[in-house]
Amino acid sequence: MTNKIYTLQLILLLTLFWIILFERFTPIIIGTGLCIVSLSIWFSEKYLMESTFYELFPFNIFKLLRYAIFLVIEIYKSGISIIPVIFTGTAKPGVVEIHTELESNILLVILCNSITLTPGTITLDIQGHRLLVLWLNPKTMQPTMAGIYIKGKIEQKLKEGI
């Protein structure tokens, strides 16, 4: 994935968003969309940001789509497993601390948002490689075991690339 292919992918994605907002598929709309998208990417890379989009948010649309499908299945699994807790009404939330090995900022943000989006856990704070997680009915307080329970499969998927 080089810089040029990445920029082309970004332009196509944003143009698709432009067409969806206009709800028409005519040459004039596509032309103005391409012009405005290219202009805005150039402007924000030159004047608003310190480096390029490719260095800050590298992603591949197919890998991102695969990750989204995986995440939806995880959300449904834990969402159904949380329903008995509501009807019994017994919950003792606790704060546990886990460690992560991911390096770049975008991967850390996606990991925290995925943990929050999965029912039953909410990320509270992040300092370096330590995450504070609020957990409904904690099974263990030990960082390593809690890490396997909370983020095991998500972190593996993220390590394969996004």
Binding site: I75, G89, P93, L117, T118, P119, G120, L136
Partner: peptide, 24 residues
Amino acid sequence: GIYRFDNFYARALVSSKVDTVGYL
């Protein structure tokens, strides 16, 4: 879920998340 529990953390954990699944 927001009427079953007696502290805020449990309410936030349960209700807003099941709400996300329903929205999806």
